[in-house]
Design a protein around this nucleic acid. Structure first.
Lengths: 153, 153
DNA sequence: TATTGTTATACTCTATAACTATA
DNA sequence: TATAGTTATAGAGTATAACAATA
């Protein structure tokens, strides 16, 4: 009976699915998959980062990341450069074209999907952010707690 | 500059990703994929429903749904039955084994992933649900509004 | 020895569209 | 004509594990 949280999770999932359905349409119009858009959005406004960092931020595992980056490289949207300090590591960054995609596709997706918030007040946003920040905190704490057990069981 | 909502969306995505990472581990331990678990969870505690309804609820398109249901059928977790009233339609429901999976896998996933909420108060839940309900409402309204335009552009 | 990224395998999901059978 | 579900195709993400090069 302690499943009080299920309603919240269901709502969370519905919101996320709903938003992804909304934005996904525009993402696809840019010729990107969700994962590719994720990478572009993560690399945008940064000097670039390693595969490792990119994988951590996007939840894409390294094996998959190779493929995703490969396809983005073929499209000319990202480029890789060996890291100076650690020669095992690659540094991934947006190309000019990638930055342009970021600067057009990202705002386009944002603008279209953001329409639904037109009647949101400052208070509405504050409440939502506050509730989600608290949620994020316990979830991240839970991940940190369970992660070390991965190999023990 | 009207991107006030981006922070909320980012938080939403982080929460969802975090929760999916948490629960995904347990889902996989039950031998189910995310989509399969989604179907099982949706069919649980219902007398069953049509493909159409199932697709609407899970956001899985009909073409994909055929495959997902097929694999669940092979595992003996769901069964299909032609609808009496509409012979085009199939009625999908959990088998005994499927119900058992629902009754064990679902609570297991729920129990494990629910651990992170152990310190959540009634008020915390109320705030979260309230904020998410409001969010869901505007997103769903946005979907309804944009859906008819799909073929116009 | 541990870590970064690659490669290979096998499976699953996705979008799309043409198709069948029923309404 | 429209709808429920199937089939086919092509592409993409996932888990897993063995592997090379570097630390």
């Amino acid at each position: 009976m302690g499943e009080r949280f299920l309603k919240s999770i269901r709502l969370l999932a519905e919101c996320m699915q709903g938003y992804e359905r909304l934005s996904g349409e525009y993402v696809r119009r840019c010729g990107l998959t969700h994962a590719q858009f994720d990478i572009i959005a993560t690399l945008g406004n940064t000097p670039g980062m390693s595969y490792k960092e990119l994988g951590d931020k996007t939840l894409i595992t390294k094996g998959t990341l190779t493929g995703v980056i490969e396809r983005l490289e073929q499209k000319g949207l990202v480029e890789r450069q060996r890291s100076d300090c650690d020669k095992r590591s690659f540094f991934v960054r947006l190309t000019k074209a990638g930055e342009q995609t970021f600067c057009t596709a990202f705002p386009a997706v944002v603008a279209q999907s953001g329409k639904v918030f037109k009647d949101y007040s400052e208070d509405d946003f504050a409440r939502l952010e506050s509730a989600l920040s608290a949620l994020k905190q316990v979830i991240m704490a839970g991940q940190a707690a369970s992660a070390p057990h991965r190999e023990c069981d």
